[in-house]
Design a protein around this nucleic acid. Structure first.
Length: 286
DNA sequence: ACAGGCTCCTGCAGGC
DNA sequence: TGCCTGCAGGAGCCTG
């Protein structure tokens, strides 16, 4: 496994997770899990691996979709239109990949889960850094997964503003808080703040109504754009390279420290906010 | 209650 | 050349 595979790929945020969920859904919807194998590391298992394996075996995959940064597999006791009885919830962390392969495909290092399907395909979860999480939910015993925070793609003006009301932390840090907005990571936080013309260190609770609305729209536009780019790569989602196509996304500020702003030529600055590297244009963002 | 900092984990870049 | 150190980062957990 070369480093290029790990780092020439964007961190999985909402658009990447959306694309992956769509790609996996297209390949495994209606299939059945006949066997489940899990690794023995402590991580990345939110549910003990043995319980995941016994819960998953025999289940039909009704659908796969995204909620925040989580990939949710809806599972039933039968195919097609049967009721959802359980969920397999996958979080990719920083380096996680969810692959659909053939059984003969070489097993990558750091493979933590392999689900053998009735069709002969395999779902694999690979994660070198083990920041990802795998969870199994039996819906007879716990409620359906709904994500930690609001959906940035569909949230309305008032609800968005309410999220930040009275918050005494930097807007950049607030954007990364998954309990407020689910799905925004470091890249799209920086890019949306640039598009909205807001400094990352501005206190969230002190932003005006108009500024927050600019931010909401900027974030949504960037996510829509990124999903559109990723969407065209779904058909390429087959092998161990996982997602392609996001490289086309031209970052305005993210990881462009010292390079000229694409709007005003001012060098992009890098600071640390909430423990995360943060990039902004000192002239375009106020 | 809320905010900030530490921790997990591996691979890579840079220094000597 | 090769070792060693520092850094990257999502999110749970602990602390103040």
């Amino acid at each position: 496994m070369s480093g290029a595979v790990l780092y020439n790929r964007p961190m999985p945020e909402l658009p990447e997770v959306e694309t992956i969920a769509q790609g996996v859904d297209a390949r495994v919807r209606g299939d059945r899990i006949v066997e489940a194998w899990f690794g023995s590391h402590r991580e990345p298992f939110k549910t003990p691996p043995a319980r995941q394996a016994s819960g998953l075996e025999g289940r039909w995959i009704l659908a796969v979709h995204r909620t925040g940064k989580h990939i949710v597999c809806e599972l039933g006791a039968r195919g097609a239109d049967s009721a959802v009885q359980a969920q397999w919830i996958v979080h990719l962390g920083m380096t996680g990949r969810l692959l659909v392969t053939t059984p003969e495909s070489p097993v990558a290092a750091h493979t933590h889960a392999r689900l053998t399907l009735a069709s002969g395909r395999e779902i694999r979860f690979v994660d070198p850094r083990r920041f990802g999480r795998l969870e199994y939910r039996d819906l007879l015993r716990s409620k359906a997964f709904s994500g930690p925070g609001a959906e940035p793609m569909t949230i309305g003006t008032d609800e968005f503003a309410a999220l930040f009301h009275g918050r005494r932390l930097a807007i950049k840090a607030a954007l990364l808080n998954q309990k407020l907005l689910a799905g925004v990571g470091n890249i799209y936080a920086d890019e949306s703040l640039f598009r909205a013309g807001l400094r990352p260190r501005r206190m969230a609770g002190r932003l005006t109504r108009a500024e927050l609305e600019r931010l909401r729209l900027a974030l949504r536009e960037i996510l829509v754009h990124a999903i559109r780019l990723g969407g065209s790569s779904v058909s390429d989602y087959v092998d161990a390279n996982g997602v392609r196509g996001f490289f086309q996304l031209e970052h305005r500020v993210y990881q462009r420290t010292g390079e000229p702003c694409r709007e005003c030529r001012t060098p992009i600055r890098r600071i640390v906010v909430g423990g995360r590297s943060t990039h902004y244009c000192p002239l375009c963002q106020r």
